[in-house]
Design a protein around this nucleic acid. Structure first.
Lengths: 332, 332
DNA sequence: TTGTAGGCGTTATCAA
DNA sequence: TTGATAACGCCTACAA
């Protein structure tokens, strides 16, 4: 039971060659070195026999590369981010990098600690959906490649990959118009650190304004209670041809729940829509019409950007706003 | 713009002390060394000024500890696993460890590569929901602390933390009995590497047998099409007092979808239940009754087990089967 | 109260 | 075709 993991030195000892020989053979580094086939074979054999695995610590120390990148998101539990991470992880893995995942839980303090820690672990790049404007400052001054996703880092030059939120709002507004709604309420929890919500709201208003339909924005407290949706529903019910739009997957979910518990008929009494798709929106009857994000593309682009910065290909990195997608179901 | 990250040596240089002094002061390692307060102060000041962060690579190489553990799951996108990871990450973080996350996508090949990689990164422990029986062999022979979660590693002594699947099935069976069902179909995709599904099925049968209610198990292909649920539904419709139970969150979701598209009334025409909870189960109307897992406890226990093994507190680690939870909604 | 030296595993440069 | 050596950043026994 050899519990000790073998180093390059032990492999060398057993194969009767110098450690550096082992290193070059195992790394296929034959640029300036030719080795006898039998030496190569022997080294390979011994390495396999001993179950040799290179020590990343040793390698990192020597090369300065860790082949690790980080991703910092508010919540892995959300449909959007879990799918995003899944796609991202795939791309990261395929390029030989590994992904260190951190969930800030929208907590700025923790976010800073996470970042500090990631930096000391020598990550070569970071993809972040920031909960705080300041927490990434350390990454920027350290000169570590950084890409923001979902939420931009306003006031910085950090390249961003995200949904075109204004277009998303407009698309929804347009659709509401087509469906003949005359009153619209946009609902979202107060999220001081998320600049995307106001943009979605703005887009919605813009879309509706084309036919002079008025919109009302409702800002709920950050951790609002289900009961707080009741007055919104009551208000909406009093008007004819009203739709409520959740600006967040969770909000939309709960609006629908509230309408249900009020025994309202959707969409006849009140229409419901949302920005961001989620499985329940499809299962529920009537299904909830939503604007979906191109998650796979977001992940792809975000890592492409990061890789560009890591490999120092100083391509111009414009911010990237991806187009939203309308999914028509029956709730509007 | 000092883009280079300072080492302990540079801090020492600037503070006019030896690197080892810096090391001991920064690590509060005063067991055999007393330092003049002004030296301490100076070192601290310089470290902060330079934005010093210890290099994990250097430290790991020297100490053999990485303060990293891994988690390997089939799919971060599933409700169960995303919540599990969230809870796990919290505990891991709080004990000073960091979490390396990997998604195998139920792919045994990839799983092996992941594990190989994690090992070479020097993880001090691994929590795994295995997609394959063999892939963890490497971890075992390397003597790295290992805990399985959700799915046990049969035929090994790896400590396991998971739901009591038989009890979960029984609990559901019991409830179906109470609700007066006379026919039950248990549906799950074929998952050769997931031993929990047969257990759930077994428990269900056991629960139902108490009153002689028969159960039928339906094994769907791994990536079954929605259309394949149609015959199941047709079959179920032909019997009176029938309930279909999904053994997986995804399966339950899709069974419900199928019943919907057939225009069936739930639970009057057919009842639906599931093992594993998910948000949509709550939002749909009627809500889907499910057996829920104690996710937070699972994560807590799993990491507690791992930590025990890492710190070599050779406490006896019995396998841990946590009790399921019945959530009554209206679909049964 | 502080300094010195050695080595963890790796790879790049230089020598043979 | 192979070997020797040094260095990455850190910690720690041992010396001063």
């Amino acid at each position: 039971m050899s519990a000790t993991k073998p180093s390059i030195t032990e492999v060398g000892r057993k194969a009767k060659v110098h450690p550096s020989t082992v290193s070059r053979i195992l790394n296929q580094n034959f640029e300036n070195h030719q080795y006898a086939p039998k030496t190569i074979a022997k080294v390979m054999a011994v390495a396999k026999e001993l179950g040799y695995r290179p020590s990343q610590a040793g390698r990192s120390l020597r090369t300065g590369k860790t082949m690790q990148v980080g991703v910092l998101i508010p919540d892995i539990t959300s449909v959007f981010f879990s799918h995003f991470v899944k796609c991202l992880e795939k791309h990261v893995w395929e390029t030989g990098y590994r992904l260190l995942i951190c969930c800030s839980n929208e907590n700025a303090e923790q976010e800073k600690e996470y970042i500090s820690d990631l930096l000391s672990r020598g990550i070569e790049g970071l993809i972040v959906a920031p909960s705080d404007t300041q927490s990434c400052q350390q990454v920027i001054t350290a000169g570590i490649p950084l890409v923001s996703v979902d939420r931009p880092l306003l006031g910085t030059h950090v390249p961003h990959v995200g949904l075109d939120n204004v277009a998303a709002g407009e698309m929804m507004g347009q659709y509401l118009l087509e469906q003949g709604y005359e009153h619209v309420m946009a609902v979202a929890p107060l999220s001081p650190n998320d600049p995307t919500l106001p943009l979605r709201s703005e887009g919605l208003a813009k879309g509706l304004a084309k036919h002079g339909v008025a919109m009302q924005t409702v800002d709920l407290p950050r951790n609002f209670a289900q009961a707080q949706l009741n007055e919104i529903v009551a208000f909406a019910k009093a008007q004819s041809r009203t739709a409520i739009v959740g600006l967040t997957e969770d909000t939309t979910f709960r609006i629908y729940e509230a309408l249900r518990s009020h025994g309202l008929t959707i969409p006849d009494d009140i229409g419901v829509g949302g920005i961001d798709d989620f499985p329940a929106a499809r299962l529920v009857c009537p299904g909830i019409s939503v604007i979906a994000q191109p998650i796979e593309q977001l992940a792809h682009k975000a890592f492409e950007y990061l890789l560009n910065k890591i490999t120092n290909q100083d391509k111009p990195l414009a911010h990237c706003q991806l187009a939203p997608n309308l999914i028509r179901r029956q709730s509007l």
